[in-house]
């Protein structure tokens, strides 16, 4: 009989792992709590670094895992271990017994309203990176006043690298996302002045540095090194952004018509809730803890339990997909060994 593999989470990590396990002759079951596959990537518009439509990526993955058993709108009610098997009770009443579980529960967006000084949910023209993707996908957003877009600000590290917000890690994808979105807005509003407020520019990936130089040279995006300290709304509805320009060493202010907050990637508390039922360790940043961070990123501390994607920390799409394939191979090897 084919071996059952339970995949928790139907984002790109879960979908890619399911597709690979199918190819290797196993029977993956995807358990997805929302009403669709795709996770966060399903909400994005164009993906860095090549501006690939996110929809194309998600559709392709959905097609390659369509033969998996997929439960949408379903969560894990309980999980326990009995000898070498895991028993899962699902919210739809179905119970599953398996030797192999793959966590692909992903991340949560950092709630930008927690950084009150940036005015998200308080002022009229403050949006997040995720809101901007949603709007670019054709969804109306009344905070986006397209008639008066003369100056736009981007705030990096919103709720990332922030011990007070209890999210100390770097979210990794938001520097490049800010630059991508700044270029996209500049293309829509060529006369707009765009400012990126950053602490460090972390552009580590393939083609990321090219994006940065393009933003400077071809699009005239302004980069200001300083963390935004506060934002206030002026009488005319424009937002006044304050920071220290740390390279000159002087306080700086600029009025903007739109402020985009680069909300970070935070851990998904669901992961811990499920993992704790079988005593899996959680890392100091709240993400799931791999058995080590170099050669066993996809392995957990428990036999038969594996991880892939952003459930262990901030990742890009290609990194997530690579881990999903690697986890599928680890599971395949474990299955073969047991036979």
């Amino acid at each position: 009989m084919n071996e059952i593999v339970v995949i928790i989470g139907g984002g790109i990590a879960g979908m890619e792992a399911a597709a690979q396990l199918l190819k290797l002759g196993h029977s993956p079951i995807i358990i997805e709590k929302s009403d669709r596959l795709g996770g966060h990537v399903g909400k994005w518009n164009m993906l860095f670094p090549d501006l690939t439509p996110a929809k194309k990526v998600v559709d392709e993955l959905a097609d390659s895992c369509r033969d998996a058993n997929i439960f949408l709108n379903t969560e894990i009610s309980s999980l326990n271990r009995l000898k070498d098997r895991y028993n899962l009770m699902l919210s739809n009443g179905i119970s599953i017994s398996t030797k192999y579980i793959l966590f692909a529960t992903g991340f949560n967006m950092f709630p930008a309203q927690k950084k009150e000084e940036y005015g998200y949910g308080i002022y009229d023209h403050v949006v997040t990176n995720a809101d901007l993707e949603h709007w670019m996908n054709g969804n109306a957003d009344k905070r986006m006043d397209t008639s008066g877009m003369k100056t736009i600000g981007f705030v990096h590290c919103v709720g990332s690298r922030d011990e007070k917000a209890r999210n100390p890690q770097c979210s990794k994808v938001c520097c490049i996302t800010a630059i991508k979105q700044a270029i996209e807005l500049k293309n829509m509003y060529p006369d707009a002045q765009i400012y990126c407020f950053y602490m460090d520019l972390r552009l580590f990936g393939k083609k990321f540095e090219d994006f940065y130089t393009k933003a400077q040279r071809d699009h005239g995006i302004h980069f200001i090194r300083g963390r935004v300290s506060e934002v206030s709304e002026a009488m005319d509805g424009r937002l006044v952004v304050k920071a220290e320009d740390t390279l000159i060493g002087k306080p700086l202010k600029v009025s903007v018509d739109l402020l985009v907050l680069m909300a970070g990637m935070a851990c998904n508390p669901d992961s811990e809730k499920i993992a704790s039922q079988i005593a899996l360790p959680i890392d100091t940043d709240g993400f799931l803890k791999s058995s080590d961070n170099i050669i066993h990123i996809t392995s957990s501390a428990k036999k038969g339990v594996f991880y892939a994607g952003a459930c262990t920390g901030p990742k890009t799409v290609p990194e997530t997909l690579a881990e999903a394939r690697s986890a599928a191979l680890d599971i395949h090897t474990a299955i073969i060994k047991e036979r």
Binding site: R161, M199, D200, R225, G226, R227, V228, S229, E230, K242, A243, E244, D245, T246, G249, P251
Partner: peptide
């Protein structure tokens, strides 16, 4: 300190 400038700005 990571020289973010929040202290100086406020």
């Amino acid at each position: 300190c990571m020289s973010c400038g929040s202290c100086s700005a406020t």
